[in-house]
Simulated scan of single mutants.
Amino acid sequence: MTLKKKLGMGVMSAALGLSLVGGGTFAYFNDTAETNNTFAAGTLDLSVDPVEIVNVGNLKPGDTIFRPFEIRNDGSLDIDDVFLATDYKVTDAKGDNAGADFGEHIRVNFLYNADKDSVPVFSKTLKELKEEYSNGKDTNVVIFWDEFWDELFNGYLAAGTQDNLYVEFEFVDNGQEQNVFQGDSLELKWSFTATQFEGEER
């Protein structure tokens, strides 16, 4: 066998030996421990009772409508804020309103949260509420008012609880002729939006 062949056989033998060492098995002790983990999201579930707060006809200037209602937290998470957004649609019975807005003549004298001792809306027409609080991020109906300290504190709506609210609407008698609104109707939509507390270390 020539020297060249002997060297080639040696290189091949060495490569085979290295592959056996690298691909071989060897014994060792081992132990395994496992964990089972669960991530479950909580729920925000806000409801209003009754869903139709006001349904009244034959209104005339000077009439007031007082109604109680409640907001409930039927979810598993505490609610930080409940924001109110206002929208409405007017049906002009005779088509002669000439730009006059019935919503400018219906006023919320107060919206009172009895459980938080707060008045989130005071003496605002529906037109003002629609213009000022239409995005649902301004009027918080669960904020807490501390009369003793004369300061505002952040209230909240705990899971499984409700707040009792009272509202009074008034068809404002402005002392002038308001005949253009005879037979008109207004559909008011109040949207209550609940928000969570900020995340925390758990």
Rank of each mutant, 00 (worst) to 15 (best):
Y156M: 07
S123A: 15
R107W: 07
I143G: 00
Q162H: 02
N135V: 04
S134W: 08
T139P: 01
A114C: 07
E104Q: 03
L129G: 10
N154H: 06
F153S: 07
F110I: 08
N113I: 05
L126F: 13
S134M: 15
Y166T: 00
D138G: 09
K116H: 06
V121P: 06
L157Y: 03
I143W: 00
A100T: 09
E131R: 12
P120H: 12
A159C: 10
F169Y: 03
K137L: 12
K116T: 11
N113Y: 03
L126S: 12
V119E: 15
Y112G: 05
N109P: 14
G103Q: 05
Q162N: 01
E132A: 13
S134T: 10
R107M: 14
D150N: 09
D150R: 15
V167R: 04
S134N: 13
I106H: 14
F153T: 04
E170P: 07
E104R: 07
K124F: 14
R107P: 13
L165R: 02
F153E: 02
V121D: 01
F110E: 10
N135I: 12
W149N: 10
G160A: 01
N154S: 05
V121I: 10
D163L: 01
A114S: 14
K124S: 10
V119A: 15
Y112M: 03
F169W: 00
L152K: 01
